[in-house]
């Protein structure tokens, strides 16, 4: 197996998807909102297709705004069905995301015929072609467009989590206490969902609409099995995300198959390993502990 320059760009893009996903995933896991994240990542699809149909190209800004707002709409719709229509929560999630995703697939399969966006791309993205879509500023090649977009999203997410660390932390741990001291749980809920929408949109081109969920939940869940320190959990999940991206890419080229599929497979594998072996919160941790106590 020999790697060419393009492969490194693809790997970098994979890492740039994995990092913000891992960070936001930690919050989703702890807030018990993984399935809402799943719904959002599905539901941004019609937004992406619509933005694409209107502008006729994969322009970054309208895409992030158009599709990102659709992610927010999903959150509202789920809340609406749950609170106003009084549908049970899991059904609200299920009805909302399948409907929006179906609209997206219909739009793709009926109205759009373009290399950038097709049914396969919807499912598992297209990391391999990322190095060929280059950005040019003043006639100078500046590297792949996707890298710049993802880089920007990374900066935004990192800044968001860094600056508002306390607000996110407290509304995740104890929302009613947060409200009691004047920190709005609703505001930060929607801010977080907005960030998840943005990341889902930005990752769409690389890994598709469905596999984003794996990037959100697998590294975060793995980290949650290893530590009791929230900051360490964030760090570990980023580490697992990057490791899955790189190893998964290598796995995928050796099998000549989808890069995103490979990354997710590795992420699942890492989780499996940690789940079995984690000294503290793994499958056998209780047995291990009693074993050591006896010894």
């Amino acid at each position: 197996m020999t790697l060419i320059a393009g492969d490194y760009w693809s790997m970098l893009a994979g890492c740039l998807v994995a990092i913000p996903c891992a960070i936001l995933g930690c919050y989703l896991v702890l807030r018990r909102m993984v399935m809402i994240g799943d719904a959002i990542s599905h539901a941004v699809l019609p937004g992406i297709v619509l933005a694409f149909m209107l502008t006729d190209k994969m322009d970054t800004l309208p895409l992030l705004i158009g599709a990102g707002s659709l992610g927010m709409l999903t959150t509202f719709l789920i809340e609406f069905l749950h609170r106003k229509v009084r549908l049970q929560e899991d059904a609200s999630i299920g009805v909302t995301f399948t409907w929006l995703f179906a609209i997206g697939v219909i739009l793709v399969s009926t109205f759009v015929s373009n290399v950038h966006i097709d049914q396969e791309c919807v499912l598992y993205g297209d990391l391999v072609n990322i190095p060929f879509d280059l950005m040019e500023i003043g006639g100078k090649e500046m590297g792949p467009v996707a890298i710049w977009t993802l880089g920007l999203v990374n900066l935004c997410v990192l800044a968001f989590v860094w600056i508002f660390y306390r607000q996110l932390f407290i509304t995740t741990f104890d929302p009613s206490f947060a409200v009691a001291i004047g920190i709005s749980a609703t505001l930060w809920h929607y801010a977080l969902m907005g960030a998840v929408s943005m990341v889902s949109v930005a990752s769409f081109e690389s890994v598709g609409a469905i596999l984003v969920v794996a990037f959100l939940v697998a590294p975060a869940a793995t980290a949650y099995l290893l530590t009791d320190n929230f900051k360490l959990m964030l760090g570990l999940s980023v580490l697992f995300g990057i490791a899955s991206a790189i190893l998964g890419y290598l796995l995928a080229i050796s099998l000549n198959s989808s890069a995103a599929g490979g990354m997710v497979t590795v992420a699942g594998g890492i989780f499996g390993l940690v789940f079995v072996l984690s000294p503290r919160y793994g499958m056998f941790s209780k047995k291990l502990r009693t074993l050591f106590k006896v010894a």
Binding site: V217, V264, G268
Partner: peptide
């Protein structure tokens, strides 16, 4: 057998199984 909440476990299994499926399919 672990402290992973049910929704996270569901999302994890869903996406990882699907990812493996995509890997095999491609």
């Amino acid at each position: 057998r672990s402290r992973i909440p049910e929704d996270a476990a569901t999302g994890l299994v869903l996406s990882v199984f699907f990812g493996v499926g995509i890997l095999l399919l491609t």
